[in-house]
Amino acid sequence: MRRALLAATATVALLLAGCSGGSSTEGPGNAAGQTIHFGDQAGQQQALLEASGVLAGAPYQVEFAQFPAAAPLLEALRSEAVDIGVAGDSPTLNALGASDDISVVAATRTPSAGGLSILLPPGSPIRSVADLRGRKVSPTTQGSIGHYLLLQALKEAGVPADQVQISFLQPVDAAAAFKTGAIDAWSTWDPYTAVAQQDSGATILRDNAGLSPGLSFLDANNDALDDADKRAAMTDFVARYNRALDWARANPQQFTDIYAKLTQRPPQVASVIAARAQRQAVPLTPDTVGELQTVADNLRSSGVLRTDVQVAPRVRELSSP
């Protein structure tokens, strides 16, 4: 089953191996010879890591499996088809609420808004979030960051969620529905936001500024974390991943060019995505964990989370000594 899931979801695989080049590991484990299966979304992290070159000389291999959204990625993480993967705050919390098999191991923050937005098609009569009352809106997948944004925006506008027709769709289906007018608005994230803006002339009704903390996370399977050698490899990987984020902020044009080439997206789309993806690593301090806990509490109060999720006990930070 593990092989079948990887074969079905992996669109690209990057195998990097070489002599140890001063890797930093945590604990008694030995990273050499390990293989990390990394869950990515729409090729964005692979493009970042390949463009930056930070994995050169790693004493382990990295295989990337691509997913259209966080929900199937996290399901693969739960089933051990991947060891570690990237997801936003809401899907991470939904996964934590559904399983004891996953922990949060690292965090990043996006200071800019716009990549996560509620979009309108050209010529829409909608002028405010309040105008979504009675309209059909897709927040993309259930429990996604798009779902959380929609709920928070409706709350801000004083519109009960049950007064909006919410339609959960996978990104490709939501994009098609948006183009044909089958939905009135679409709450989604980059690269889908940027593609809709460039290809369809979509406009932003409300972005996530002030509504979500802009945090993304690396989540890992607990069995992989409990394996000392695998954990050592993932600790080194996280350190390299953070260096890749630093490289992307310092070299935006190079990142844009390589991202466009690897993902085969138009340069205009790649440029918008790269500009809005200037993330940086943040430690999993009590303040950061508290921000994620606030999202959890909001999701619980809105009924998206069916159980209370206490974030702090689910954090197993991977950081260099």
Rank of each mutant, 00 (worst) to 15 (best):
A239F: 01
L215T: 09
A274T: 15
P252S: 11
D287A: 15
G201P: 02
D207H: 09
M234P: 12
G210V: 07
Y241W: 13
L211A: 08
P267F: 00
Y259I: 04
A239I: 03
D223L: 07
F217T: 08
A277T: 13
F237M: 02
A232S: 09
R279S: 14
G214F: 12
D236M: 01
K230Q: 14
A209H: 10
G214L: 11
A270Y: 07
A244K: 04
T263P: 09
T235Y: 02
R279V: 15
G290V: 06
M234V: 04
Y259A: 06
M234F: 04
D227A: 09
L218C: 06
D287T: 15
D246Q: 15
D287F: 11
L211H: 03
P213L: 15
T263K: 10
M234H: 04
N208I: 05
Q280V: 05
G214K: 14
D219Q: 13
G201E: 10
R231A: 02
Q254R: 11
F255A: 13
G290M: 04
G201C: 10
D207A: 10
L215N: 11
I273R: 10
R279W: 10
Y241K: 03
G290R: 02
R243I: 00
A239G: 08
P286V: 13
R276P: 03
A209C: 02
V238A: 05
D257P: 00
Q253I: 00
A274D: 07
P252W: 06
L225E: 07
A224R: 03
P267E: 00
R206D: 06
A275G: 14
R265G: 00
D236E: 03
L225W: 08
A239C: 08
T285R: 04
V238G: 02
A260F: 09
T285M: 12
R265Q: 09
N208Y: 09
T285A: 10
